[in-house]
């Protein structure tokens, strides 16, 4: 991802079909992702704050089912 792209506001998006509630993202980014009663991630609405972008990117990268996406906020 180019540094210019980084500066654009981005948001976390979940593919709920792919998600299997492994919970890795919840461990990595509790600031923005909480667990529901069944262990599935609940993502805070709105763009990802700048200082959390590296962690968000990491959460996206390590999701075992590739269910978490970082997309341009629109």
């Amino acid at each position: 991802m180019s540094p210019r792209r980084r500066r654009e506001p981005q948001r976390l998006q979940l593919n709920p079909i792919a998600c299997e509630a492994h919970g890795v993202c919840i461990e990595l980014l509790p600031e923005l992702i909480a667990a529901d009663p069944w262990g599935y991630p609940v993502i805070a609405p709105g763009p990802v704050p700048q200082q959390l972008l590296p962690l968000a990117q990491r959460a996206v990268n390590v999701c075992p089912t590739l269910a978490l996406l970082l997309t341009r906020a629109g």
Partner: peptide, 9 residues
């Protein structure tokens, strides 16, 4: 039965 929040919730 595809999405956890739906199939559980």
């Amino acid at each position: 039965g595809q999405c956890g929040p739906c199939s559980n919730g």
